[in-house]
């Protein structure tokens, strides 16, 4: 929320967008938010064989204050949900969320009383990573895709425009559980 928000759209804004996107994507600090099995694969990603440090991201921050990417690795229970939200709120913006694994994305195979059916009920998710657990290579792939997304982020009035469009589309969309067809 700095000067870039005040810039009029045009060549100046797009240049700043490119520069800011490049800087942001290359200095991403993940917060360690390991919950379950997926967290073990997340740890494996940082170790020698998969070596996340090739992307400059091997150091997971213990404190959300120092991080701007939250990798939600594992199943989120109803008891843990408020904690997740609090930690997300403590992270300084701009921040991103990666839902790692089937459980974080949708509740996975645990369609029951204990598990939140997807962390997008609690926090906005930028990228979903399927798999149970996803292989370390898949996590790296998701992170690279997220990098691309970050470097393409729009700012200022361009961003406001996109937000308006996305919100309009979301309001018009039908909730998933109301969609019929196919079998029903």
């Amino acid at each position: 929320m700095g000067l870039e928000e005040k810039l009029p759209s045009g060549i100046m804004l797009t240049t700043v967008e490119k520069l800011a996107g490049y800087i942001r994507k290359t200095s991403l600090w993940p917060a360690s938010f390991g919950l379950a099995c997926c967290a073990i694969e997340m740890m494996a990603t940082t170790t020698a064989k998969y070596d996340l440090s090739r992307f400059g991201m091997e150091v997971f921050r213990g404190s959300p204050r120092q991080a701007d990417l939250m990798i939600v690795a594992g199943r989120l229970s109803n008891k843990m949900a408020p904690v997740l939200r609090q930690i997300y709120d403590q992270m300084a913006g701009p921040k991103w969320v990666l839902a790692m694994g089937a459980c974080a994305s949708s509740g996975g195979m645990f369609n029951n009383y204990a598990i939140v059916q997807g962390v997008d009920h609690i926090v906005p998710v930028d990228i979903y990573l399927p798999g149970c657990p996803p292989r370390p290579e898949m996590l790296i792939d998701a992170i690279i895709k997220l990098h691309e997304q970050i470097s393409d982020t729009k700012l200022g009035s361009n961003r406001a425009q996109i937000i308006r469009e996305v919100e309009a589309a979301a309001l018009a969309a039908k909730p998933v559980h109301q969609i019929t067809g196919l079998l029903a």
């Binding site: 195979m109 645990f110 009383y113």
Partner: peptide, 25 residues
């Protein structure tokens, strides 16, 4: 309890063989 997953209850809704898929987690 921050990772309570209700696996024991879930197995009651699947066959004996499918139960393996739950308990492994």
């Amino acid at each position: 309890g921050y990772l309570h997953t209700g696996i024991e209850k879930n197995t009651e809704y699947r066959t004996w063989t499918q139960g393996v898929t739950y308990v492994t987690r």
